[in-house]
Amino acid sequence: MNFLAKIADWFRSIGTATRNGITRLGFATRFFWAIVRASGPTFMRPRLLIREIYHAGVLSLVIVLMSGLFIGMVLALQGYETLVRFGATEAMGVLVALSLVRELGPVVAGLLFASRAGSAMTAEIGLMKTTEQLAAMDVMAIDPVARVVAPRFWAGVISLPLLAAIFSMLGIYGGFLVGVKLIGIDGGAFWGQMQVAVDWRNDVMNGVIKSVVFAFAVSLIAVFEGYDATPTAEGVSAATTRTVVTSALAILALDFVLTVFMFRGGVN
């Protein structure tokens, strides 16, 4: 009997976790619509948006530039090791560009964005909630979702695709530096093969679409966790951690789904 009770407890805990997860997903969805409905002021007053783009985008620029450059350089070095065995080092441009544009650009830029800007958004909104700044706005008859949440959300949605593009560009340049300048592959072959192999619609546009989807996901997670945080110091720090973890999982899961739909042609 005791054993059965333990099994029942175990299933019950799964049930509770599932129900909580679904409830939170429901809240997040409703929150998303609340943001969309309250987005008027964000676009009527670009000053709010510009300030938040500065915080979300410009302040993430350095880490994205550096990571992009290094990841491109590493891709070129590792790619060379493999390609040289098949005598196909000219394909390095293709390798670097396709890896970055299709996968690494959107995904790694998304992960960096979540940990740099997303966590900051959560902490900021959570802190405003803890110190009753959001309640103060509410009492002043100013909707905190319109004034605080929506500008941050849209700034994230705008910033991440740009960061992902910058990341890919820097990565390709990093690959060029290592492949052409350091190892000595023919520069013409590097760019030429890349241009033949990379399709602007199937590869570049799909990469951009990925980054836009990630941008919506990460920004929503970040502002939701902040707004939903328990208004205490521990609550805010827990929410910040949740933002990074949930965002990372969301990016990787969405990436898989999107890849299946976008690049099915390569599988069949």
Binding site: I53, V58, V101, P161, L162, A165, M169, V198, D199
Partner: peptide, 27 residues
């Protein structure tokens, strides 16, 4: 200052998109 940096950031981002579309994707 904020306007300047945001301007630089957006221009850089759009430039990167064009770079990917034109130079890499051969648009």
């Amino acid at each position: 200052t904020i306007d300047l940096w945001v301007g630089v950031f957006v221009a850089l981002g759009l430039g990167a998109l064009f770079f990917l579309a034109l130079k890499v994707g051969n648009l």
